[in-house]
Structure formats: C-alpha cells, structure tokens
Amino acid sequence: MSRYIARRLLQAIPLLIIISILIFVLLRSSGDPLATMGGRRVTRPDDRARLARVLGLDQPIYMQYIYWLIGNDWVMIDVDGDGVPETQGSRRGVLRGDFGNSLVTRGKSAVEIITERLPNTLMLMIPTEIIILTISLSIGIYSALRQYSILDQVVTAGSFIGYSMPIFFIALASMYLFAVNFRKWGLPYLPTVGMFDPKVGKTTSQIIWHMVLPILSMSVISISGYSRYIRSQMLEVISQDYIRTAYAKGLSERMVLIGHALKNASIPIVTLIGIDIPFLLGGAVVTETIFGWPGMGRLFIDHLSRYDVPVVMGILMLISIAVVISQLLTDLVYGWLDPRIRYD
C-alpha cells in the first residue's frame, strides 16, 4: 500500500511540472504586469525599465521559469541598471517552498497572500458543498426511483433550468430581490456584499447572514447537475439484476434502497466529491466577485487582471496539488469501499 502511494506521488511530479510550465508560459505571454500597475495611467518608461530589471521580468521566459522553479540565489542580478550584475538573487524557488513575492502587493509572499484568503473560501464552500450534496442526493435518488413520473419530470425540468442558468443571473436577481427590494418593501432583508458588516464586526452570525445569498446562488445551479448525476448512477444500479432479485425476494423498497442500491452507487459519489474538493480551494470566481466575498476566486481574478504571476501560479499549483492528493485519496477510499478493488 505504501509503495502504491509512493508510486502515485512520484508519478505526480512530472504532471505538476507540465502544468506549471503550461500556465507559466500562458501567463507570461499575456499582458505586461508593469503596463499600468493598476493605476489610471501608463507607467513612466524609466520606472518601467527599472522595475522590469529589479523584478526579473526582462529575462527570457525560460529563465523566468527556472528562477520561479529553483530560485535565483545562485546567480548575480543587476539591480542598479549599469549592466553589471552585482547583487545576489534572493529567491529560493518553488522547489524550496518559495513561490515568490507578489508583483502587486510587493513585499508580501504569494504563499502569505493565499493563506490569508483560504479560510474565507473554505468557510463559504464547505457548507455549500454539504448543502448541495445533501439536497442533490435526495433529489437524485427520488427521481431515479420514480423515473418518468410526473414528479421526476418536474424535478428534472426544475433542475435543468437551474443547470442552464449562468450563475451571475441568479446571483444578481436574488441580490436585487432579497437585499434591495425586500428592504424597500419593509421586509426582513439580506445583506448585499461582503463577509460581514464592518459596523457590527466579524461575528459568526454576521458571517452566516452574509453567506445566505452566495450559497443560495451556487446551490441552485449546482444541485441540478449533481442530482442528474446521482440519478443516472442510481438508475444504472437499480437496473442491475441483483436489485431485481432483492425486490423479488420481497424486500421493502426502503431496504433495497439503503441496503443495496445506495451502497453500490456510493463509489461514483465518492468520485464526485473527489473531483470537487480540490476545486473548493479555488473558490467560485463569479459568485465571489458579485457578493464581494474575500475568497480565492476573487484573489485569482484580481491578481490575474494584473498578471501577478507568482500569486496566480501559486493558486493554480495549490489546486493542482490538491487534485493529485484527492485523486489518490479517492482511489484509496474505493479500495476500502469495494473490496474487489486492490492496489499493490
């Protein structure tokens, strides 16, 4: 078993390197982080040249990647612009745990910036995931058992509408309804943006209150897709012979469902969670943008818009590593759930 784990982890290394090269090249061949530096005007030419030199952005792209990967503390760099490298580089590189300093929030490391936001994202995404799974399990199982019944059609149609909606649509519509109009109508209303009201402070109740709308929006669009998936998995299972046999034995529907069908449908559900968990770390770009939730999704889009390579690389690599680990865990759970699967 431990050899299996070790082998999987070793296999992941080239994978992660491919991913990092892919994203790095994409990012560095897009915009110029020094063009406006977030300001309203173009950066002065002298400053731009100086910063490119100091931040290493004037190097060829493969050198930038190498510096990112293994650091530049083994070379001299030219800081004062006289063409003679005189200062020892200070970056240690990703392989030694240094993702570099942000190009936007200079002086703060990418790791620091990411870890500040990670808890916020998890605080929003974990409850969302739980709600989505609970509801979509119920819906999925129900509509599988009553395939083509009127209720299945209604639930299917409803879930399809949710699935077919862009999330910003639901997010903004619910914000205008529950936050703006409810207030206008004198009804109890929900807050619009942020994680808490700064006038009240960061209390648990405030955070929960501010989580309602984002969770609602994300649930509406995701429950549908998931329940469809669970429905199809259940359908597959209940069309199996042993289920017929179980019914033939005269077992109650409940017993068949719990004892046989759900059990066998659990592997695909584990797969689903395995796929989801790493992406939970990435947060939800659109939802977080609309509701002003200070999570990873917004961090990503903010820093991507200024081509902050260290932070964007950091986020994507974090997700990639999480994907690798969660795939491994998923496979281990398979083996545990289904004794027929063995890893050597």
């Binding site: 991913i19 892919l22 790493p278 659109v286 990639s320």
Partner: peptide
C-alpha cells in the same frame, strides 16, 4: 487538473 474557468480566463 486546472479548473476550467481560470484556464479559460488565462
């Protein structure tokens, strides 16, 4: 392994 939306944006 790279989430689709971020990849799309990049």
């Amino acid at each position: 392994n790279i989430p689709q939306l971020p990849l799309l944006l990049v």
